Amino acid sequence: MINGVQQKIIQTSSYIEVWEYEKPIRYGFSKKDQFLYRKNESDELTRYKRLAKTRQNARYELMRLIDTNYCDKTTKFLTLTTQENIQNRQEFNLLFDKFMKRLNYNAFKSKKKLLKYVAVLEKQKRGAYHIHILLFNLPYIPYEKLQKIWKLGSVWINIVDIDSKDNRGKYITKYMEKGIAQELLEHKGKKSYYSSNNLTKPTQLRILDDESIDNLVSDKHIAYQNEYTAKLKINGEWVENKVIYHKIKI
Rank of each mutant, 00 (worst) to 15 (best):
W150F: 14
F136D: 00
K151G: 12
A119K: 08
Y117N: 01
K148G: 00
A119E: 00
I133D: 14
L135S: 01
V120I: 10
L121I: 08
K116H: 11
L138F: 04
G127H: 14
G127W: 14
Q147A: 15
K125P: 01
I149N: 01
L121Y: 05
K113P: 15
N137Q: 04
I149Y: 14
A128I: 06
K113Y: 14
Y143I: 07
K123C: 05
N137T: 03
E144F: 01
W150Y: 09
E122Y: 13
I133L: 11
A119T: 01
I141F: 04
I133A: 11
A128E: 15
K151Q: 11
L121N: 08
Q147F: 11
Y117R: 03
L134G: 15
L135T: 06
E144D: 05
F136Q: 03
P142D: 09
H130V: 14
L146M: 10
I149M: 09
V118F: 03
K145I: 10
F136Y: 07
P139R: 04
G127F: 13
W150H: 12
V118R: 09
L121G: 10
H130K: 13
Q147Y: 08
L114P: 01
P139L: 04
Y140W: 03
L115V: 11
K123E: 12
A128T: 14
K113M: 07
L121H: 10
I141S: 03
H130N: 11
N137E: 02
H132I: 08
E122C: 10
L138C: 02
A119W: 00
L121C: 05
V118D: 02
P139Q: 02
H132L: 12
I141W: 03
E122D: 07
Y143L: 13
A119M: 02
K125Y: 07
L114E: 12
V118W: 01
I131W: 02
Y143P: 02
E144V: 05
Y140G: 00
A119F: 00
R126G: 12
L135K: 08
P142T: 02
P142H: 07
P142G: 04
K145M: 06
Q147H: 09
I133P: 01
H130G: 15
L138S: 02
L146T: 02
L121M: 15
G127S: 15
Y117P: 00
K116D: 00
L134W: 04
Q124H: 07
Y129I: 10
K116W: 08
A128R: 15
K116Q: 03
A119S: 06
V118I: 08
K123H: 06
Y143W: 09
I141Q: 05
K151W: 15
L146I: 08
L134I: 06
W150R: 10
A119L: 01
I131L: 08
L114M: 14
V118S: 04
P142L: 08
K148Y: 09
F136G: 06
P139E: 02
K151T: 09
L114I: 13
Y143K: 09
E122F: 09
W150K: 08
W150E: 13
W150P: 11
L146Q: 04
A119H: 00
